[in-house]
Design a protein around this nucleic acid. Structure first.
Lengths: 332, 332
DNA sequence: AAACGAGCTTGGAACGTTCCAAAACCCAGG
DNA sequence: CCTGGGTTTTGGAACGTTCCAAGCTCGTTT
């Protein structure tokens, strides 16, 4: 270490001084700091991590950078991690199990101190295996619970329920559901939708149409839903699906919300840019991110039992939902 | 190293065997591999990087995760990095110089082999300093060139020019510009707009209105632009600005494109979701990402001179631009 | 029978830190 | 002038790899 030579002290003392240890004498500290400054010295994190056995890095693994839901969770993670002195690095796996696995492996190899997985695409077995090597929290509803992995999710059933109740309160009865493609969260929303329809005595009006993954499929699904027995309101599995629906409604000359009410899910920025502004179920994403970090810290602190946090979503009413055409407004 | 003991060989041989060196005898290799398998052994990347002096990691520093322009550049970076055997990790700085600096520092401390900066918010001096520690490529138009830093940008003047020519060809003369807030790219687009207007003899119709950063400011700027002397066409500094304009036009009952043509910039996914679909100038983002990696590799390979690549953008015509109201279509 | 070379294997140094026990220094008290 | 105790400083081990020069074990050549 050149700084040691430059300042005429041992490497040990340099190490102490640079870490701000107060056992270092005033004169020595002075010389060391100026020497380090002059030489532009930067301690090597790799070496430090090697000896300390930790990196002060939290890894975040996500499927989809373009998805604002994910990125807001990340914001929450970053906020808490910063406050605790951790650096956050993101690894991006796309919707590809293999790539996700590889990226997860990269993070673990880096010896990150914890991993937040924002994706339900990862194989539960892979997740469990990762949890044996480092604390792992999964944000979102898992396909199956993996032992050793904590989870933070929103209550999809409750979210769907709130949306259906809102629509029923506006007088709607023929409430349809533009559902997802079998991912865990979408299944739960579907379930919540069906249960609430039954609970309201609207079971007979239950109508579910799955939507595709790519834009053309989405458009077709939306158009079919608006076809023959058109519902007066639709709960979409997410904002993207709701958008496809709005688009299709516009194309077919169906006015929203006067001819059709639409409710989305996730309350992405999309909901606030689209016309008309979209009523949507909001997940507390920031809170979820912060919570994920707290769970990681608890694990590092020695907790062994698994925790599964479920947060309550909140309906944000905007312009895309209104009174049912024939109704007189509130009936419930 | 337990594997060595387990297989009854030296740690050196284990190291060789696991890296697939062909000098290792068949019997020993066999024993080592099964021992490693049984013990669930994973070599420690930190230690390897420490001795080899490189990490096979490329860092990407970005301002805004939520911006699809950025994330597509990232996709290009990842594609090329993967092909070259590098892992890509992202650090996210938000629009905050200090935070960006800290994140950059984190990446450098990790000893990444190269950094791609997708942000024009970073202080050029900080960038230059970073370039002294690792190869750095900046994607986007820099505030000022930093010695040692390569850049990859699109030709904003040319993009703005293409948009104006397109509108002029449709017969528009009163073409206004909803401009940005002084970032380098937006200044260049502004310049391209003005120059092209002059070139077409439309200098007298030049009208530039700056837009704000937050939604309410954007809305006001859009509304003012549509006020008194309403232009027949507008080039917006980016898709978000164009969106605000579309929104405002809708609110004031101005039909697009019949009463007003709008052209955006960046061709984000927004352009394909908004109604009407937005004509927009597309930057070759994937190519830019790939190019950034190539420049990094060249630096690692020993190149010393700086390179500044400028790519040509391409106008994507959609439904938001049409013939000028009074005109007969193509005039140019 | 000695020397050689090819194929495999090994021990120890090195990477740049932190950690720890021990050494050196200093000053006050006896 | 020695002793003790606190403060400051030090050398060497350790972290888990890779790298390198050197070693061993054969069978083959001279």
């Amino acid at each position: 270490m050149d700084v040691a030579a430059e300042a005429g002290v041992s490497k040990s003392l340099v190490s102490l001084a640079l870490r701000g240890d107060d056992r270092v004498g005033e004169a020595a500290r002075e010389r060391i700091l100026t020497a380090a400054e002059r030489l532009g010295y930067r301690s090597n994190t790799l070496a430090r991590s090697l000896v300390q056995g930790r990196t002060m890095i939290l890894g975040v693994l996500l499927t989809d950078l373009a998805n604002p839901y994910h990125t807001e969770v990340v914001a929450g993670v970053e906020e808490s991690a910063d406050a605790e002195g951790f650096t956050v690095l993101l690894a991006h796996g796309q919707r590809d199990r293999r790539r996700l696995g590889r990226q997860l492996e990269s993070l673990l190899q880096l010896n990150v101190d914890g991993v937040v997985v924002i994706s339900s695409w990862l194989d539960p077995a892979v997740l469990a295996e990762a949890a044996r090597r480092a604390p792992v929290v999964m944000v979102g509803r898992p396909t199956a619970f993996s032992p050793g992995v904590d989870t933070v999710a929103n209550d999809d059933e409750a979210g769907a329920r709130a949306a259906v109740l809102h629509l029923a309160e506006l007088g709607h009865e023929r409430i349809a559901h533009l559902s997802g493609t079998g991912r865990p969260a979408s299944r739960a929303r579907d379930e919540g939708y069906r249960a609430t329809m039954r609970e309201l005595g609207l079971g007979g009006h239950t109508a579910v149409r799955p939507i595709g993954d790519d834009p053309p499929q989405r458009a077709r699904a939306a158009s079919e839903l608006l076809g023959s027995a058109r519902p007066s309101a639709v709960l979409a599995v997410n904002d993207l699906a709701a958008l496809a629906l709005l688009d299709q409604a516009h194309a077919s000359g169906v006015p929203v919300p006067d001819g059709l009410s639409v409710v989305g899910y996730d309350n992405t920025t999309l909901a606030e840019t689209v016309r008309p502004r979209l009523t949507s179920v909001d997940q507390p994403r920031l809170v979820m991110g912060r919570l994920a970090v707290r769970l990681l810290l608890e694990r590092m602190g020695g907790r062994t039992g698994d925790r599964h946090e479920v947060l309550t979503p909140r309906l944000v009413v905007r312009a895309s939902s209104g009174p049912a055409p024939g109704g007189t407004g509130a009936t419930a």
